[in-house]
């Protein structure tokens, strides 16, 4: 697959949130304002790429040689969790401004299934290292896009008349469903 195709596929056709239904918690939790959505989205891109790099190396040089591929999920969770902790500490010390803007989202990503999903999908598709990193970045971008779209819709929703029983999460879930449906139009493009 060419670079371009990987991007189109990860962002639109197989959008991690809207087509694969991963990472729904931050999708609903962090999409109330565009600023928050942007912070969360960029944090996810960053962590996904880092996590894919680490897990890819661990898979190739540790799990495969000793035939423990079935422990993939468990090991990946362990790696992602410690990686996020490490990144958080590193940012706090080295780049305080970045920590101030991303810091509050990092703990949320520790157990984000979207990150774990990407690392596992990369193994299922048997991508090479560069390909995996690219795929991870594109998937993160797709997540950011979904979050931003949702935040935009929800900001508009603030001034709309919503039936009382539907206000808050119910209407957000309906919006998420409609958005998922509309993204189905991209199916078959790649």
């Amino acid at each position: 697959m060419s670079v371009f195709e990987v991007f189109i596929s990860a962002i639109f056709v197989n959008n991690i949130v809207l087509a694969q239904n991963l990472g729904n918690c931050p999708y609903l939790g962090c999409s109330k304002e565009k600023g928050v959505a942007l912070g969360m989205g960029t944090s996810v891109i960053f962590v996904t790429v880092m996590a894919t790099l680490c897990t890819w190396l661990v898979q190739k040089y540790l799990l495969v040689p000793i035939h423990l591929e079935y422990l993939q999920t468990l090991v990946f969770i362990l790696i992602i969790a410690s990686l996020v902790q490490f990144v958080e500490m590193f940012l706090k010390k080295a780049v305080p401004p970045l920590y101030a803007s991303l810091g509050i989202y990092l703990p949320l990503i520790t157990t984000n299934c979207c990150v774990l999903g990407v690392t596992l999908l990369v193994q299922r598709e048997q991508y090479e290292l560069m390909e995996s990193l690219l795929y991870a970045f594109a998937t993160g971008a797709g997540f950011l896009l979904a979050l931003l779209l949702m935040a935009g819709v929800r900001e508009r929703l603030e001034t709309c008349r919503v039936p009382t029983a539907m206000t808050g999460t119910p209407i957000a879930l309906i919006m998420a469903g409609i958005m998922s449906l509309s993204f189905m139009a991209f199916k078959g493009m790649v």
């Binding site: 661990v58 540790l62 799990l63 000793i66 423990l68 422990l71 468990l74 090991v75 362990l78 790696i79 410690s82 902790q85 490490f86 500490m89």
Partner: peptide
């Protein structure tokens, strides 16, 4: 052993 090892390495690193 592999999991304990990994966990240990991660703990030490952190």
């Amino acid at each position: 052993l592999a999991l304990t090892g990994l966990g240990f390495v991660a703990a030490v690193l952190l």
